[in-house]
Design a protein around this nucleic acid. Structure first.
Lengths: 400, 400
DNA sequence: GCTACTAAGTAAAAAGTTTGAACAAACGTG
DNA sequence: CACGTTTGTTCAAACTTTTTACTTAGTAGC
């Protein structure tokens, strides 16, 4: 479900044409401002083929021409950019705190966003509200004139990799929900691409895909909130999301860090979430669910009990990061989620532990960067929009 | 390095032809006995294209025609198989115990194998011996008449994903070795494909690739010997090996299971290897390195100390498997390596723990199969041969 | 200001691949 | 033994990329 397409085993002539168009688009997407000649060199195509491809992409509103480039001798080439005016991508996230929506351009620029607080309720009521918000977003002034490529939804739980079913969302109290079907039924007028995915996987995909500087081979996004999830994206040309058999790939909150430790919500003992997660910190420090965790902690940071709890949670988080390093070894780790707002008391022990231990095996000095996203409000929703774009470019269908 | 090719961004006409040839080959490889008509249906190609492709593959010795198939009405189709007579794949593994070599056919049938004991020594001496053995294997009666597609080498340590450098092999005492260059220099007459990879990754690849029944999307091979390594292979059409930035993906022996626990060989504390690994069991029970671990344990299985150590090691192994389940969630886990020979005292606790805990999160009854390979002597060498085949079929080059 | 030079992009013929439709081959059935 | 059915092949047609030549647009030198 979503961004890992079965590569067409074989291809006809039309497939080849489409492949070349998408290669051109992908090159421009990742290095904006390329000229036709640059593309011909990098994609190993002839000038003629590139010229024809660019022409059709210009006509379809995918590309736009920019200024003339470096004039060092011969005729200067004309810069090419993604057309930021013609299309729009819609993304949304549902979680315990409510709904978040974004509309963005082909480069991931957010045109407009919405946020609506909603206590966990039934899938149907949630879908009703989300459908209304999507409709409103679609007709907002920033979006209205554009062609909509599709809608991506990010959800807080594992999703079946074969069928669009949300297997479980413990924070919402949902199980085996075909949320995409509920939503599509309420929005028949939007007959473009539809997809849904796990929020950490969407976020990971978006962070890798909507990036033009420091392009990396792989990336893990760690979503630290009420629970701890992660998403791994690998592969340079077309990033693939690791899903696994049941969509459980990335459920690092339920890896065991303390055999025989405390009981977890899942029933096992010693899961990482028993040490570091929104719910376990709340439980340890007696903080109710209806108040913000970081706000409740702020005045209490001087208390010894709070300090110890956060330091231990931070060390557990560091251990989790180190284990990811030795299991997946991503080129970059991105840390987001509401727990990040707790700040240094939690993050310092985590980063210190990770940095101190990451190079013991190889003895190198190469550092795997950990990027911390202070405000990850719209990261998953934007990532879901990124998945829509990826499917439009590389997936099956008559687009492009 | 090895089997993850940068998908040609764009393609010319020749590329398309090659893609279709490789799709035909891949279909027959995975479902031997298909007819041209079956292929045309499944690959979405026309009969004419398939006919031409099959013809050229027959002439090049990739395929052979078999018997006539089901005669239910019309003209029966002719079965197609991989040609088991024309080509040969060579694979070898270097580890603490010595060298292992296999020569196999396109379906992974082992034509002949060699095993040579060798105490860890310098890379040069090892390469000298391995070159001699490869030469001998090449001219053995089972192999001599065949065309060699290439040689794959499996090594016990992380390998740089960009360059063919063995970063570290603690058991051999090697660091930053260009072993493939050493070997190629000694075998200039073998100018076919050359590749090297980590032994667990090679094994994982081979177990998934050389399989025609129960084809799965993904597979993790856990290699439990002196240390603990793993390899993850994912992707149905062309299985991809997870490597990571520094080739550390799969180094599960150095994930932390016991924060603040014993010191590991790597310098960190509480690594899985401190609980379950050849070296830690030897250390705990005072078994010298020059005797076989399983043989030394056999007469001592009644001792309480031995029972406790093995049970604890088994539980740690079970935890490791469960953490893999929640991190990568492979369709199948395959367990090999010399520790498997210890048998039930180690494996029963591991499997019991895994089975008891694997379904707590989703609450399903679906079981992720764990296959135990009793004799994994040639699994990595055969996997390296499988990687040669995959590169010949899908990789760049004029083959096919 | 003119010419020479360089590189980018385009137009039309040429080459190569898949396709489509017709055809030949092989088997079972009545 | 004729008929229906399915497999596999043949050859002209369609389509895409390539090749080649040419136009375009700027810089540099005199």
């Amino acid at each position: 479900m979503s961004t890992n397409f079965q590569q067409h085993k074989a291809g006809d002539l039309h497939f080849l044409k489409r492949l070349n168009r998408s290669a051109i688009l992908e090159l421009i997407r990742r290095a904006p401002g390329m000229t036709r000649a640059d593309i011909a060199t990098q994609a190993q195509l002839t000038k003629a083929t590139v010229g024809a491809g660019v022409q059709s992409l210009l006509e379809q509103g995918w590309l736009s021409e920019g200024e003339l480039q470096r004039s060092g001798g011969g005729r200067p080439g004309r810069s090419l950019y993604l057309n930021e005016q013609h299309y729009v991508l819609l993304g949304a996230e549902v979680d315990v705190h409510g709904l978040r929506l974004v509309a963005c351009t082909l480069t991931g620029q957010i045109l407009t966003s919405r946020q609506e607080y909603l206590a966990p309720t039934t899938p149907e009521i949630t879908a009703d509200l989300l459908a209304d918000l999507l409709r409103a977003l679609r007709s907002s002034p920033e979006v209205a004139g554009r062609q909509c490529l599709g809608v991506g939804i990010a959800l807080p739980g594992p999703i079946d990799p074969k069928k669009p079913i949300l297997r479980l969302a413990p924070n919402l109290g949902w199980r085996d929900i075909r949320f995409l079907d509920l939503l599509r039924a309420r929005l028949p007028e939007l007959d473009s691409l539809w997809l849904m995915d796990n929020e950490a996987k969407s976020a990971a995909f978006g962070e890798l895909y909507f990036r033009t500087d420091k392009i990396t081979d792989s990336l893990v996004y760690v979503s630290a909130g009420t629970g701890i999830g992660s998403g791994m994206v690998e592969g340079n040309h077309l990033p693939l999301i690791s899903r696994g058999l049941q969509g459980l790939a990335g459920e690092i909150g339920h890896t065991v860090l303390q055999p025989g430790g405390l009981y977890c919500r899942c029933g096992n003992r010693g899961c990482a979430e028993t040490l570091v997660s929104g719910w376990s910190i709340r439980a340890a420090l007696g903080i109710a669910e209806d108040q913000s965790l970081s706000e409740a902690l702020q005045p209490r940071l001087g208390e010894a009990e709070v300090q110890v709890t956060l330091r231990r949670a931070g060390e557990a988080l560091g251990t989790l990061l180190l284990n990811l390093h030795h299991t997946q070894n991503p080129s970059e780790i991105v840390l987001g989620g509401s727990l990040v707002q707790i700040g240094a008391p939690l993050l310092d022990p985590a980063l210190t532990y990770f940095k101190a231990n990451q190079n013991s095996l190889l003895g190198t000095t190469q550092q795997v960067p950990i990027r911390i996203i202070e405000d990850s409000t719209f990261v998953s929703a934007r990532g879901a929009a990124a998945q829509v774009l990826a499917r439009a470019i590389h997936g099956p269908g008559e687009l492009l």
